[in-house]
Design a protein around this nucleic acid. Structure first.
Length: 733
DNA sequence: CACTGGAATTTCTCTAGTTA
DNA sequence: TAACTAGAGAAATTCCAGTG
C-alpha cells in the first residue's frame, strides 16, 4: 500500500501504557492520502523520531506521537499536506455534555448560553430540555448541552447563578474550580476578579465589608443579620408569605390591626416571561410601587367582573343574582371588615374576621343562603359561602369546621356536581402543614370533582408568586403540592396566566407581596373555566380572586367507554381479571343477589381494564420514544458509514411499525364510538349515514360495450340486465 | 435549609472479542 | 467477514452528607 509498510519493525509493546498512548494520538480525516503523505507532513512539523504509529481506520488516520506537547501543537496548528492545511483533532473526545439541574422554565436558553460563553466555552449543540415521562410537555428543570471547554479550564463550576437562581451544573470529570475564572488554583472568594460590591476592594464579600454599618449595634464590618450582639431571631414563619405579621396579630388582638390607608399605593402588574433577578434588596427588580394611582375599584377588563364590582360599591340593597349566566366563584380575605358583608355573589370567602354578628349582618344584605364556619368569640376567623337564590343550585351537603378554618360544601350547579373546600390556612408553617395534611385526609372521602379555594397562606413558587423573590423555605408548601398531585388539582390562575406576575396580598408598607389566595381545581373542571382573574378589592389588604365556570360549554360526562379486546391477548391482564372475579366471589352479595353482584363486577372489570390499558399505553409510549431515539441514532450511523449494516435499523423500524399499527387499531376502535352512540338511533347522524350509503350503492353512470355512456336510471337497469343476460348465455360470441 | 461536592446508581453507547 | 454479545466507559440521574 505504501512505503511505511515495507519498513515494518518489531517494537516492544511495553513502551507506554495504553491510556497514555490514546492521549498521545491525533486523528486526521483521510482525504485519499497515503501513509507517506501524512508521515512526511508530520515529520516536517515534529520530527519523524517522535511518531510512533500511523494507522488508517474508518476513514481517518490515527497518528500516535511520543509527546503530548506535539499533540497539542498539531491540534493547535493543523497539518500541511501537499500544500493544503488539514484539521488535526484529538482521539479522546474533548466534547462535554454539561447538564444543568433545577432550571426554571422562565430562564431562557440564551441566558444559559451567554453564561457559558462568558467562561469561554464553545457551544456545540442546542439545549435539550428534559421533561417528565408521564407529562411530556412539562419540563423537569434538567437541560443539557454539548460544548467544548476553553483550553485553560479543566472543569466548569458546580453551580452557576442566573436570574437570581443557583443552578446546579454537572459534567463528566468535574473538579472544583473558581466560579469566576474557572481556575483550579483558587475558589471564587480568593479570585483576583472578585471584588466587593460595597467598596470595590478585593478579599471580602459585601456582607463582611469594613464599610458596612450594622443598624442594630451601629458597628462597622458586618450587617445586622450577622450582628453578634443580637440574639438569634426566633425561628419564625418567614414562609407565611408576609402574611404572618399582620394576620397573626389580627387573630390575637383585632384592635391592633392597622387600617389600610385610604389611598393605598398602587401596585404595578408586570407581564414578563421571567422574573428579573433580585441582586440587591434595595434595588427591587419587580417594582411594587408605582407612580400611577390605582383606583380602588376593580380594574379588570372582564366586563362581567367589572359590572359586578361596580354594583358592589353602588348599592347595598338586596339583590337576586340568579340572572347571571355564569357561575361565579370569588375568594378574598377581608381584613378588619366590620362595616358590612360584601354582597357580591360568592361561593368561597375566607375571612380573618367572621363571627355570628357579621354572618347575621350579611344575611340582611344577601338574598340567598350564606353558609359559614367561624371560630368565636376568642378569635374571630372563618370562612363562608354565599349561594345565589333561585338559580339551578342545589347544596346537598354542608360541613363547617368548628375552628373556622374551612367549610366543605357539596353542590350541584347546572347539573354538574362538585365539592368545594373553602379554606383559611393557619399562618404558622407547622400548623399550616398539619392543617393541609388534615385537609388531604378529608379530601379522600369526598366525591370529585373538587374545588379547593381560599387563603392558603403560602405560595407555590417563590420566584413568580412572591416579592421579593428570595427563596422561602416552607414545609407546608410540600404538603400543598402533595395534595395537588394526589387529587390532580391545578392552580387555575397560574395555568391561565403562566407568565403574569400578580399578587393577592400586599403588605401595608407595600414592600412585600404574594399570591396566596387561589383556586385549585380538579383537571376535569378546567375545561369549564370561563375566566380566572385577580382584581383589587377596596378596604382590604387582599385582592379578590374570581373564577367563572360555565357548565353549559361542554357535554357532560366522559362519553362511552369501549373495551379494547386486544388486551385479552395479554396474559397478565387475564390473570388479573381471574383474580378479581375470585375476589368478588368471596363477597356476600354473590350468594344473596347475583344480579347486583354482576353489576358491581362489571364496574370493577371496567375500572381494572381502564387502569390496565392506561399503564400499558404509558409503557407503549415510552417504548416508542426509545425506538424513535434508537432509529435516529442508527440512521445517523447509516449516513455516516458507507458500510453500515441496516439490519438493526430495519429491526427497530419494524418494531416501531408494530407498535404504531397497534395504535391505529385502537384509534379505529375508538372511532366507532360515534356509531355506537348515535348509529342505532334514528337520529340525524343515522339518517345521513343511511342516505350516504344509499348514494354510494347507486350506479350513476354506465359504459356500454359500444362505448356509450348512459346516465338515466331506467336505461342503466336495462343495460345491466342485458349485460348479465348476454354474459350467462351459452351461445354468446 | 439552601447550597455544594461528590459518590452511587442507572442508562446508554461504543468497542473489542468471539463465533459461524 | 458478518453477526452477535459482553463489557467498558461515558453520560445521565439520584442521593447523601457537610457547610455556612
Amino acid at each position: 500500500m505504501d512505503s511505511a509498510k515495507s519498513t515494518t519493525a518489531v517494537q516492544s509493546s511495553t513502551q507506554k501504557p495504553c491510556a497514555v498512548m490514546k492521549n498521545n494520538s491525533v486523528r486526521i480525516t483521510d482525504n485519499k492520502f497515503e501513509a507517506r503523505d501524512v508521515l512526511r507532513a508530520l515529520s516536517d512539523d515534529i520530527g519523524k523520531e517522535n511518531i510512533l504509529g500511523c494507522v488508517n481506520s474508518n476513514g481517518q488516520w490515527i497518528v500516535t506521537l511520543k509527546e503530548t506537547t506535539d499533540v497539542e501543537l498539531l491540534q493547535a496548528t493543523g497539518v500541511l499536506i501537499d500544500g493544503v492545511g488539514y484539521e488535526v483533532r484529538g482521539v479522546t473526545r474533548n466534547l462535554l455534555t454539561v447538564s444543568l439541574f433545577g432550571v426554571p422554565v422562565f430562564i431562557d436558553d440564551n441566558e444559559l448560553s451567554d453564561k457559558l460563553r462568558e467562561f469561554g466555552c464553545i457551544l456545540k449543540s442546542a439545549w435539550t430540555h428534559k421533561t417528565y415521562e408521564d407529562f411530556p410537555n412539562v419540563e423537569n428543570g434538567i437541560r443539557y448541552i454539548r460544548l467544548e471547554l476553553p483550553s485553560n479550564a479543566k472543569s466548569l463550576p458546580y453551580s452557576i447563578f442566573i436570574s437570581g437562581v443557583h443552578l446546579r451544573l454537572k459534567h463528566n470529570g468535574q473538579s472544583r474550580v473558581c466560579n469566576i475564572c474557572l481556575s483550579s488554583d483558587h475558589i471564587m472568594r480568593e479570585c483576583k476578579q472578585y471584588t466587593c460590591k460595597e467598596c470595590g476592594m478585593q478579599g471580602h464579600s459585601e456582607s463582611k465589608c469594613p464599610r458596612v454599618k450594622c443598624y442594630r449595634c451601629q458597628q462597622f464590618g458586618h450587617k445586622s443579620f450577622d450582628c453578634p450582639t443580637t440574639p438569634p431571631a426566633p425561628k419564625e414563619d418567614n414562609t407565611s408569605e408576609m402574611e404572618t405579621n399582620d394576620s397573626a396579630c389580627a387573630e390575637q388582638d383585632n384592635t391592633t390591626i392597622q387600617d389600610i390607608p385610604d389611598n393605598p399605593q398602587p401596585r404595578e402588574t408586570i407581564e414578563t416571561d421571567k422574573p428579573t433577578p433580585t441582586e440587591n434588596e434595595n434595588k427591587p427588580s419587580r417594582k411594587i410601587n408605582s407612580s400611577q394611582p390605582k383606583p380602588r375599584n376593580n380594574e379588570t377588563t372582564d366586563p362581567a367582573t367589572l359590572n359586578t364590582e361596580k354594583e358592589d360599591n353602588s348599592t347595598s340593597q338586596k339583590r337576586n343574582l340568579s340572572s347571571e349566566d355564569d357561575w361565579t366563584v370569588q375568594t378574598r380575605k377581608m381584613k378588619n371588615n366590620k362595616k358590612k358583608a360584601d354582597p357580591t355573589p360568592n361561593l368561597a370567602k375566607a375571612q380573618t374576621f367572621w363571627d355570628q354578628s357579621i354572618h347575621d349582618q350579611a344575611k340582611l344584605e344577601w338574598d340567598g343562603d350564606i353558609l359559614s364556619s367561624f371560630y368565636s368569640p376568642a378569635r374571630r376567623r372563618g370562612t363562608s359561602c354565599l349561594i345565589r337564590k333561585g338559580s339551578d343550585n342545589d347544596v346537598h351537603h354542608f360541613e363547617p369546621d368548628i375552628n373556622g378554618r374551612f367549610l366543605k360544601l357539596s353542590i350541584t350547579v347546572d347539573g354538574q356536581s362538585f365539592t368545594v373546600f373553602n379554606i383559611y390556612a393557619p399562618n404558622t408553617p407547622s400548623e399550616r402543614k398539619q392543617f393541609l395534611e388534615d385537609i388531604s385526609g378529608k379530601l379522600r372521602n369526598v366525591p370529585e370533582p373538587i374545588i379547593l379555594a381560599g387563603d392558603f397562606n403560602t405560595v407555590l413558587n417563590t420566584y413568580v408568586d412572591k416579592y421579593p423573590t428570595t427563596p422561602n423555605p416552607d414545609s407546608s408548601r410540600k404538603s400543598l403540592k402533595l395534595i395537588m398531585t394526589e387529587y390532580e388539582l391545578v392552580d387555575i390562575w397560574r395555568e391561565r396566566h403562566p407568565s403574569l406576575i400578580q399578587f393577592t396580598r400586599t403588605a401595608s408598607n407595600h414592600k412585600t407581596a404574594s399570591r396566596i389566595v387561589r383556586f385549585l381545581l380538579n383537571k376535569q373542571l378546567v375545561r369549564y373555566v370561563k375566566s380566572c382573574s385577580i382584581s383589587r378589592y377596596p378596604d382590604s389588604d387582599h385582592d379578590m380572586v374570581e373564577l367563572k365556570l360555565d357548565f353549559t360549554l361542554f357535554p357532560r360526562g366522559p362519553g362511552v367507554w369501549i373495551f379494547n379486546n386486544s388486551i385479552l391477548e395479554d396474559t397478565s391482564f387475564c390473570s388479573e381479571i381471574r383474580d378479581l372475579i375470585e375476589r368478588e366471589k368471596q363477597k356476600t352479595c354473590y350468594d344473596n343477589n347475583i344480579l347486583q353482584w354482576y353489576d358491581v363486577l362489571k364496574d370493577s372489570l371496567k375500572r381494572t381494564a381502564i387502569k390496565f390499558t392506561k399503564v400499558k399505553s404509558r409503557l407503549s409510549r415510552t417504548h416508542q420514544r426509545k425506538l424513535r431515539k434508537q432509529i435516529n441514532h442508527e440512521r445517523a450511523k447509516a449516513q455516516k458509514y458507507q458500510d453500515y449494516d441496516t439490519t438493526r435499523l430495519r429491526n427497530l423500524e419494524f418494531q416501531l411499525d408494530e407498535t404504531t399499527r397497534a395504535d391505529i387499531r385502537g384509534a379505529a376502535l375508538r372511532s366507532r364510538i360515534k356509531w355506537f352512540e348515535e348509529g342505532e338511533r334514528s337520529s340525524k347522524f343515522f339518517l345521513n349515514l343511511d342516505k350516504s350509503r344509499q348514494s354510494q350503492n347507486v350506479m350513476r353512470q354506465i359504459l356500454t360495450d359500444e362505448g356509450a355512456i348512459i346516465n338515466d336510471q331506467d336505461d342503466i337497469i336495462h343495460e345491466q340486465a342485458r349485460f348479465y343476460k348476454t354474459l350467462y348465455t351459452a351461445n354468446r360470441q
